[in-house]
């Protein structure tokens, strides 16, 4: 009887995973096809096989279409997993690196590098070292914020109050960034403003190559935290009595979140409401709290949400494209409000 129902659950689960994967592939394809410049689908595909014959299509494919679709997947994976980890780490279903101000902390780190340090080292922003510096700065900013939030979460027990606190931290950091912006010179400001918009469209394959190892490491580490995350579901005390080394578990999850959220913020700026929404979608779809299943589901759902946002951001029949942040917010916010109203928190 038990194994029977177990089999049903497992086959249902596999079915959902296959469906999600197929949807990701489909959306990935659509995202490559849709763009500001009109290029026939056939040309795009043919350009992969013979780039010299279709040089324009090939240029568009490698410089714009493939990078943005890959960027959507990479950011989706990173934001989805970092959201899931943040919620379990803080035991707060309304948590996410963005709403708790962790992303803003990362932004502040980036602003510090691009606007302050670059004044003394003007070539930093465009040099290869610059990219690494930005990642490190973002991760340091994220880590400092997360430490602060961790300390405060020991005092504030209420989920919604914690959310308000996080939003205030985020607002404070954003204000600090604005102050730094006003004190900066125009050329530096330009590079920062483009960055700060929460966009994936400016990313080239070279950027993605730098980001990928960090995201891969963060994702891998999250899988090593599966048992710890499951144990944390019913509280730190229980986790400890079940042999979990709490300090080690927390540090491991912490590093995962910092790598994922920090790297994304370093290259895309703050992207809103993906991290908080994706874990809830994953739990609803898979009806489980097993973090192994949830991590896999979140990376797929996260990719889907980012790809869909990017597809929708290209208004059909025009060459205007909306900021992807607006679309992720429009998708995520109703779900979060529904969760608050249903008191499923």
């Amino acid at each position: 009887m038990v194994t029977q129902s177990e089999k049903v659950v497992n086959s249902k689960r596999s079915l959902i995973f296959v469906a999600l994967l197929l949807l990701v592939l489909l959306f990935f394809f659509i995202d490559i096809v849709i763009g500001n410049a009109e290029v026939p689908v056939g040309d795009l595909i043919r350009s992969i096989i013979s780039p010299s014959e279709y040089s324009t299509a090939s240029m568009i494919f490698y410089n714009f279409r493939l990078p943005k679709a890959l960027a959507a997947v990479i950011t989706g994976v990173a934001l989805g997993i970092s959201g899931l980890l943040t919620q379990t780490y803080f035991r707060n279903p309304l948590a996410g690196p963005d709403v708790l101000g962790i992303s803003s902390g990362a932004s502040l780190g980036v602003a510090f590098v691009l606007l302050v340090i670059s004044q003394f080292l003007p070539s930093l922003g465009s040099s290869p070292v610059g990219n690494w510096t930005i990642i490190v700065a973002a991760c340091v900013g994220a880590a400092a914020t997360m430490l602060m939030i961790t300390l405060v979460s020991g005092i504030i027990r209420d989920h919604v109050t914690m959310l308000v606190f996080g939003l205030m931290v985020g607002a404070a950091f954003s204000s600090a960034i604005i102050v730094i912006q006003y004190l900066s010179n125009e050329t530096l400001l330009k590079s920062f403003v483009v960055w700060g918009f929460g966009s994936i469209r400016h990313l080239g394959l070279n950027h993605l190559a730098i980001m990928s190892p960090f995201i891969a490491l963060g994702t891998l580490l999250s899988f090593f935290s599966v048992k710890n995350l499951n144990a944390l579901l019913i509280g730190e005390k229980y986790a400890q009595t079940m042999g979990i080394n709490l300090a080690r578990a927390r540090v491991l999850i912490f590093i995962s979140i910092i790598l994922l959220a920090g790297t994304i913020t370093a290259f895309c700026g703050p992207i809103a409401f993906v991290a908080i929404t994706v874990p809830h979608l994953s739990r609803m779809l898979l009806r489980t709290n097993d973090h192994f299943v949830l991590i896999v589901a979140s990376l797929l759902t996260g990719s889907l949400m980012m790809l869909l946002s990017d597809i929708l951001s290209h208004l059909p029949g025009s060459n205007i494209s909306l900021p992807i942040n607006a679309l992720t917010s429009l998708m995520g916010i109703p779900l979060i409000i529904a969760i608050i109203l249903r008191k499923k928190i």
Binding site: P93, L233, M242
Partner: peptide
């Protein structure tokens, strides 16, 4: 219990 966790899931955590 901030997350909706089923009785079965809760009990199975004992195997950690």
């Amino acid at each position: 219990y901030p997350f909706y966790i089923s009785v079965y899931e809760l009990v199975s955590l004992g195997r950690i």
